[in-house]
Amino acid sequence: MSEGHVYTAYHPRWLRQRISTYWWLEKPAYLAFILREASCVFVAWFVVYLLLLVDAVSGGAAAYAQFLAWSADAPILLLNVVSFLFVVFHAVTFFDAAPQAMVVHVGQTRVPGHLVLAGHYAAWAAVSVFVAWLLASGQ
């Protein structure tokens, strides 16, 4: 078996099947994949937004008030709602994938996938509760 293809008079005339530019619309799973890939843009936006928030907070009360007013603008609000939905989609699909990528052993036995998944959600819940507590206690 040689590398590459040697064309001889007797080489079969292959039919190359083309992939359509819209292949990602062919199956719901492909579309979900493309949306998950696209979600990284929104994740990046949230990072930028967070940095802007930090910058506003460090800029004093006036800067913070201005930031809040800007955030309440319809386009920014809409962008943030859409970003939030994408980030949740990203997180959920990421967690769903975790049991496939992580094989955890306790002693000799392999931890079943749904427990690995449950562990991820538990960690998410714990962090959320912690953040909520931080916010509530800061009031």
């Binding site: 799973a29 492909y30 994949f33 994938a97 496939q100 990528a101 992580m102």
Partner: peptide, 26 residues
């Protein structure tokens, strides 16, 4: 591999190739 995951869905032998790849990446 960008983890589309369809390989695992269509595999008639439940090999889970997508899982194998992510596991190796990790």
């Amino acid at each position: 591999c960008t983890f589309v995951g369809e390989c695992t869905q269509v595999c008639p032998k439940h090999v889970d190739p997508a899982g194998a790849i992510q596991r190796y990446k990790l």
